[in-house]
Design a protein around this nucleic acid. Structure first.
Lengths: 363, 363
DNA sequence: TCCTTCAATGTAAGTGCTTACATGTAAGCA
DNA sequence: TGCTTACATGTAAGCACTTACATTGAAGGA
């Protein structure tokens, strides 16, 4: 801890009897350094416990070898109750972060993840701080709906994750929401003879939410299903809000649909809770499906039929794209779409052989 | 993306017909600026969409207003399979990260979380990069077992999370492992008349693992319980490894204990899986308990009786301590211990009223 | 009226790096 | 041997800020 100021490149240069330029070359792995000199410098670095200042590095235009990832942490909820409560929302981001970390490490970078409380004054500031510490940045969905973020996006190597791809950004990675949804709806219609559909949607400001709903509507139309407006719920991507919305819906006497398709797994799990409490059996009385395939999806009872997002690969792809942008090996403005896939488990009425939790022994 | 370079303080100064010093004063809210001048500068800032470079700011001596948090991501496993697989390990860190982010935001800082693949060559490098981007750093348990990390810890504002508190660090936050364990063992002995105990432990290099085992051993001795060596399993804190260890143990003909106390929830969940597959009913035939109270603990069946770590508060406390260190308001070398608490659910044989998943409707 | 004092602003010296350009040196070749 | 080359290294100019110190000018006191 503490003590005197930490060593600078000058100290190292002095200790190794070279100029700071040479130290810098060693630091950045330049080819033009005598092995012997390099060794001397490395030794001095170790001796002095020198760590280059990334602030200075950024200022002078060098690489920081790190990339940032900003993901949303809902501000309002956190302020009311900072506790874990609805923290399953984090599960989705988690896989992305891990994918991104993994790929960053593969390419010699480090990944700094930063939770941004959306809707806070400080939001832009946080993104700025992150920005100034990295070479490129990945902005997930909702954090982007902010002036500051937009401004940054315009001026740096930024990729937008699962966004609507309004360009402005260096690149965009999207998920094939429509493909997954239509496969799901087809499955429900064909295998389970479902005609009357319901939907639990996500936050209006999320491009993903919109995309999923529209895909759903289209898919239902395509299979000739029907969709009554009273069965169109909004759970804002949150378990608790979905529970509330469904509870309110159940209080209504209107007939329930045969299936509730939910725009993410957390809401589906919330629905499962409410339905069990009300004595409505899933999938016998009502089918429920999710979206994302978070880790919990396979642990709940009944195991959730859902659409797998390649979350891990999303992180991988985003990092690859940012670094490609950095290296100018990728065109600015490219868009990449990752596939989704239907994961059939028990909550749609199929028996799932793969799920441990869904086994007979359990019920 | 791109376009011309963004405005600097010079551009603003020129546009407002003042010097850069005055702009800086406006930026930092100095008192010595004529309201009229201030207004002119503000106008120019808005006009040029000027955002001060935080890199330059930090360089010139200011704070970066951000703190780093390094947590482990098991290297070996990630390399073999980068997929989500055993990713419940992330759940524990998640709450810490969220607590830290939250508290950082409260105090005007930002939190950068960085997954470090333990045991990799790049480990020290990653921590260095993180270090050089922040004002202070939080190192969780296992990432510390590394020369590079140690070196950093010695010279900067670093706090060690749930470590053994060997000083070296600016500060240490610990969890009262012993208190929770002994409460649990007392509960098992008193309420459930358990005498014959088993244990599934964690990685040897983790101070937490050691602390938990020792506390367990002592607690069992205190209640006069017994503990046979063949019931001492090692699951390395991993779901999969715990499954393997327990499967191997079941192949042995020796009598099983009445309860397996696991050093974390993931391993307990693994045990649950194996036992169900073998037709051994929990809690009727065998009691299983966890540690940490991760989100999944309440979702599995039967709901896990476990010891709640105040993970969120751990993050909060760590950030508070780092910033206290930064502000020199806290003594170097302080140690803070956070309490744990027993969470009784179904896997010990108690009926849990609070758990949705554990309700009668389900079984 | 002259000197002091202080508020408003400007000047310039860092801050720790990267890198273009300059320099020096030894090898290669006629 | 003398000249070109290529490589190893050094010099110094930024990079975009903060801030100590300098400067200016007007108000206030004697």
């Amino acid at each position: 801890m503490a003590g005197k100021r930490s060593a600078t490149i000058y100290d190292v240069a002095a200790a190794a009897f070279v100029s700071i330029a040479t130290v810098s070359r060693v630091l950045n792995g330049s080819i033009h350094v005598l092995p012997e000199t390099r060794e001397r410098v490395d030794e001095a670095i170790k001796q002095l416990q020198f760590v280059p200042s990334s602030a200075a590095r950024s200022l002078s235009g060098g690489r920081r070898w790190s990339i940032g990832l900003a993901y949303p942490l809902d501000g309002d909820r956190s302020i009311v109750s900072p506790q874990r409560e609805d923290d399953s929302s984090a599960l989705y981001n988690d896989a992305i972060v891990r994918g991104a970390s993994w790929q960053a490490a593969q390419l010699g970078y480090s990944l700094f993840a930063c939770a941004v409380r959306t809707g806070q004054d400080a939001e832009a500031q946080v993104i700025h701080r992150l920005y100034s510490a990295v070479d490129g940045i990945i902005l997930t969905d909702r954090v982007v709906h902010n002036v500051g973020a937009m401004r940054i996006a315009k001026r740096m190597h930024a990729v937008h994750l699962s966004g609507s791809g309004t360009s402005q950004f260096g690149g965009t990675i999207r998920v094939d929401n429509a493909g997954g949804i239509s496969e799901l709806v087809r499955h429900l219609a064909t295998v389970h003879q479902i005609v009357d559909f319901g939907f639990v949607g996500g936050s209006a400001e999320s491009p993903d939410a919109t995309a999923r709903f529209e895909a759903f509507r289209d898919a239902v139309a395509k299979v000739g299903g029907n969709l009554r407006s009273e069965n169109l719920l909004n759970g804002e991507f949150s378990l608790a809000k979905a529970e509330a919305a469904l509870t309110a819906r159940l209080a209504d006497s209107a007939a329930l649909p045969q299936a509730f398709v939910c725009a993410n797994d957390q809401m589906a799990i919330g629905a499962l809770h409410v339905l069990r409490d009300q004595g409505i059996d899933v999938p016998r009385d009502l089918v429920v499906t999710g979206f994302d395939d978070i880790a919990l999806a396979n642990q709940v009872h009944p195991a959730l039929t859902t659409i797998a997002q390649p979350s891990f690969e999303l992180g991988v792809a985003a990092v690859t794209m940012v670094i490609g942008l950095l290296d100018r090996e990728i065109e600015v403005g490219s868009v990449q779409t990752l596939p989704t896939s239907l994961v059939v488990r028990s909550s749609c009425g199929c028996e799932s052989p793969e799920s441990g939790q869904a086994k007979k022994a359990n019920s």
